[in-house]
């Protein structure tokens, strides 16, 4: 297939995934700010949201204060923010339009429909109710996109490249939320904020839609080291780093097998996965959670670059 087509499919999936992640961050923040300060501490949830979205710098270049209004505007609707939900959908649709021929009717209609629908929300919500509806709509769009791709696309390189985009983006997102909240996920025995943190932990899980999963897997109350384990090493958990890499290795290998040739991308994906498989949570904590995640984000970016130079240029 054309390199440009693969590139469009890859970024289409990345941007849809990113839009969903942003919607989840915003929804989790709304819930936290609705709790009394005594439950969540006096942190500014909106500032955390900006950090989790990875755009603290560009945000504060424009605004002095991380207020609810500023943050929702910037993360959801701003045209200036290249990664606002609006722009994610806009760019996703541009990519989709450029590769109409590589998409099924169902996936195209999902993304084109979302783009048309986006205009209905105009430049911002008139109320919190409407905003929440908007956030749910974004998540539904992502589900529909994913589902329609899963159910209708041929299992060939077009599908595999879109999956690569999805999982690289997802791994990046999960790593980012861990990075921002790592100080709350310190190992057992360390003194942490006590009951205050409970809601913060719940918010993390909610952001990666794993609150229920957590209880099924661990059958315990929320414990920070278990949360970290779930999001990093547990392959059962679809948004964990381990699960993302199980998928990335699989799709890289499928492409290599189809093309009869493998390269840097395959080796890189396998190396990262092996590292995750050989890690234990207590060792990660000992060496430093923050350091571990920082390194992971760099590794994940390197895989993106390898995929790019091997296939997309």
């Amino acid at each position: 297939m054309l390199s440009r087509t693969a590139d469009n499919l890859y970024w289409l999936a990345r941007y849809v995934e990113r839009a969903e992640y942003l919607a989840r961050i915003l929804e989790a923040s709304m819930r936290l700010t609705a709790l009394p300060l005594a439950y969540v501490g006096s942190t500014n949830e909106w500032e955390t949201a900006v950090a989790t979205a990875g755009c603290r710098k560009s945000f504060f270049a424009r605004y002095n204060e991380a207020s609810e209004e500023n943050v929702t505007e910037y993360l959801a609707f701003s045209i200036e923010n290249p990664s606002s939900i609006r722009n994610c959908i806009e760019i996703a649709r541009q990519n989709a339009r450029a590769v109409r021929t590589a998409l099924t009717i169902e996936t195209w209609e999902t993304i084109n429909g979302a783009w048309i629908e986006l205009r209905r929300f105009g430049n911002g919500p008139s109320s919190r109710e409407e905003f929440l509806r908007f956030l749910h709509w974004v998540q539904e769009t992502s589900l529909r996109f994913d589902g329609s791709a899963y159910r209708t696309m041929l299992r060939n390189d077009a599908y595999w490249f879109s999956r690569l985009g999805l999982y690289i983006e997802r791994a990046d997102n999960t790593a980012r939320i861990l990075d921002v909240k790592y100080h709350m996920l310190l190992p057992a025995g360390e003194p942490v904020g006590g009951p205050l943190d409970y809601y913060q932990w719940a918010a993390i899980l909610r952001t990666v839609s794993a609150l229920t999963a957590y209880h099924w897997v661990y059958r315990e109350n929320l414990k920070p080291w278990l949360i970290a384990d779930l999001l990093i090493l547990n392959e059962q958990m679809p948004r964990s780093l381990a699960s993302c890499y199980a998928n990335l290795v699989r799709f890289c290998d499928l492409i290599a097998a189809a093309y009869g040739r493998q390269g840097h991308a395959q080796r890189k994906a396998r190396a990262i996965r092996t590292r995750l498989q050989n890690s234990r949570m207590d060792e990660i904590f000992q060496a430093g959670l923050h350091e571990f995640i920082t390194e992971f984000i760099a590794d994940n970016n390197a895989l993106g670059a390898a995929v790019n130079s091997q296939y997309l240029m």
């Binding site: 297939m1 054309l2 390199s3 440009r4 693969a6 390189d157 093309y259 240029m313």
Partner: peptide, 12 residues
């Protein structure tokens, strides 16, 4: 264009 032929860039 390479030499006397036209090619497209593909993933392969």
């Amino acid at each position: 264009v390479r030499g006397q032929h036209a090619y497209m860039r593909t993933t392969e």
